[in-house]
Amino acid sequence: MIEAEKISVEFKSGDRKINAVKEANITIGDGESIGLAGESGSGKTTLGKSLLALVKPKEGKVLWNGKNVFKIKGKDLKNFRRENQIIYQDPFDSIDIRMRIYDVISEGLTVQGFSKQEQREIIYSALKSVGLNPPEAYSNAFPTQLSGGQLQRVAIARSIVLNPKFIVADEPVSMLDVSIRSGILQIFQDMKEKGTSSLIISHDISTLAYVVDKIYIMYLGHVVEYGTTQQIIEKPLHPYTQALISAIPIPEPNHETEIKLVETNEPVPPKGCPLYPRCPFRKNVCLDNEPKMTEVEPGHYVSCHLY
């Protein structure tokens, strides 16, 4: 189980400070599959990386089996790395193109002290399980010889060889063509059946809804709503979630998508609700007071002054 408490991440670029994540809480139970959605730049990747201590937050902590992941060292850290893995958004950037596929996948095993014989077996079976068959052919190839879809599978194989208990998957399919996306998502469903928990990050809720149990919605660094997939898809509460879901294109001729947010150039108020400028239901209270996370129905939380 991984639990993030009040994580805030700040980036400095030049003399500008970007609050990529603000006081975000997220809990991933054993065997749970969680979705994280939100617009581009809302802090999804940053939050996902801080869960794995790959980004250092300004405040807050992440607990892994009761230990703060930013403090662990040595053997503990190695174990933490083995049990918790990440798959990156862009396989072209996350794989060192100088290495053969075999070496790409074996890196984690080598670091974690697996012997050469053990490695071969594990790597071949992982390549098979992500659909790169025959494994002998792929393991000798260089990343440049593979397509984006194949490379993304390699990235997945690299993570699953360590048999992790938790995987952060950052937009695992957004680079891929529609016709092969589901093939990758299937791998995640299979892993879930084996008890691996996951955080799947995507700006595409319709894809998420097919595979995850719970969905968290982020907006400008804040988690604004979370609940079960059913709650979020069928009864979105936060105005942003509502807009997000109604904007999803529906594959049916003449279907009209509704646009529920206001277009504006107004700045985000410093103390109030981050959605204030674009919110169609905004009230005066929203300008000065940041809404608190409240449980509206069992398991369904939202931070909005409307509730």
Binding site: K49, L52, L54, L77, K78, R81, R82, Q85, I86, Y88, D90, D93, S94, I95, D96, E107, G108, V111, Q112, A155, R158, L162
Partner: peptide
Amino acid sequence: SRTFVEASKALGSGPFRIIRKH
């Protein structure tokens, strides 16, 4: 700043290994 360096760290590699291998 390339992701594969962070990826190596995420797999548990230490700084010397990352410098040497990547």
